[in-house]
Amino acid sequence: DKIAVPDVPEGEHRLQYSYSLWFMQRGRGSVSSATSDYEDQIKHVGAFSSVEQFWSYYCHIAHPSDLPPHCDIHVFKMGIKPMWEDTANKDGGKWIVRLRKEISSRSWENLLLAMLGEQFIVGNEICGAVISVRPTEDIVSIWNRTASNDSIVGKIRDTLQRILQLPSQTIMEYKAHDQSLKDKSSF
């Protein structure tokens, strides 16, 4: 199940990294933390290497405000599965931002553009970004490789605050994936 890295045709604008797009709809009522179940539920939608390829996907996928609750959209660098157990993620963590429904689609777009455009300036630390559509709020998160690196984690927070232009009362929370594994909860 190797996913091919898309070529960048002449005239298109190459991104620093190639990315994969994943979609997940959590089974209603069935609460399971088993890795295999998670892998079964998450579907690879496509991959892109250029700005133009990104927009062609983005303009065709449903936006968060159009999705039913319990859907997740993941955009991860190619080669990194959007799972805690992946080698790129196992020592990592994520910033979690809870958003009102009215602003979540725009915030998600801003987060994606900042990630694809390399606005975080933390080398290869960023793994990917997720939006989780929930009944009363949406949650965006950005994953990085090294949860123990305070300066990287702080820098990601500062960039996130700037690009999302969040109201000052917005709660941001950092969670290491090994903690998520221990307490079996993501948020």
Binding site: Q16, V51, E52, L113, L116, G117, E118, I163
Partner: peptide
């Protein structure tokens, strides 16, 4: 090495006029 950086405005311009490159 050199990193390929785009700001939000540049990315939005490429969405709005994909053939004006």
């Amino acid at each position: 090495g050199t990193r390929i950086i785009y700001d939000r405005k540049m990315l939005l311009q490429l969405r709005d006029s994909p053939y004006s490159r």
